[in-house]
């Protein structure tokens, strides 16, 4: 079976005015289905850039990225959009929920763009909300929820399409450590239930949950270690 993710010499250069920033410099990476990978590294080392490319939000400047069997370079904008809604669940540090919309509607949003009927959407969204332990908060707007609850809603949204890959960029970065622990437990459960999870984190104790830790520095992979604990 081919790896779920395969990156070959992926580079990303940002140009701001005269200044060129090389955010990623030649990343080679393979990740299998059902892996649980933590990405660590100092601020500015290119973690988010890597996640965005993995999540098909951004395109590499150089190199090739295969998701499943597909070379991302060959896909149209519409196909990339579909991959984002169907195959990838993205959890952001800043939650990125729509503020005016209820928890349930937020979760149902990817299903909307996949063309599911309102009834089906509601059913699936309710199930996902149940899954993250917020079954009783369906009609709450994001500003009526705590930070931890918001991140749970965001995770439910990432889950709702049953994606091949769950990406989480510092999901606990905006949370206190206790709430962060709860969110980490939730993400670990997702992995145990058979999801492929890639997560960026600063905290080594959080990274310790993962079976594999990739360290980035200056846009390069500094180390890629499998923990023996699991």
């Amino acid at each position: 079976m081919p790896p779920l993710i395969q990156m070959q010499n992926v580079g990303k250069t940002y140009q701001t005015g005269e200044v060129k920033v090389e955010a990623l410099a030649g990343i080679d990476l393979e990740i299998q289905k059902n892996e649980y990978v933590a990405i660590m590294g100092p601020s500015g080392s290119g973690k988010s850039t890597l996640m965005n490319i993995l999540g098909c939000l951004d395109m590499p400047s150089t190199g090739r990225y295969f998701l499943g069997n597909e070379d991302i370079r060959d896909l149209s904008d519409n196909q990339l959009s579909e991959i984002r809604s169907r195959k990838i669940g993205f959890v952001f540090q800043a939650f990125n929920l729509l503020p005016r919309v209820s928890a349930l509607q937020n979760i149902a949003l990817p299903l909307l763009y996949l063309g599911f009927s309102p009834k089906v959407r509601e059913g699936m969204a309710a199930e996902a909300l149940e899954h993250v332990g917020l079954g009783d908060r369906k009609q709450h707007k994001p500003n009526e929820l705590s930070g931890g609850q918001r991140q749970r809603v965001a995770i439910a949204r990432a889950l709702v399409t049953r994606p091949d890959l769950i990406l989480a960029d510092e999901p606990t970065g905006n949370l206190d450590s206790k709430t962060g622990e709860e969110i980490m437990a939730l993400i670990r459960d997702l992995h145990t239930q058979g999801n492929t999870v890639i997560m960026v984190t600063h905290e080594s104790y959080i990274a310790a949950h993962a079976a594999r830790i990739i360290r980035l520095k200056d846009g390069k992979i500094e180390s890629d270690l499998y923990s023996n604990a699991r």
Partner: peptide, 10 residues
Amino acid sequence: GIRRAIGARK
């Protein structure tokens, strides 16, 4: 951005 990120087409 959020809508696009979770799968809205142009």
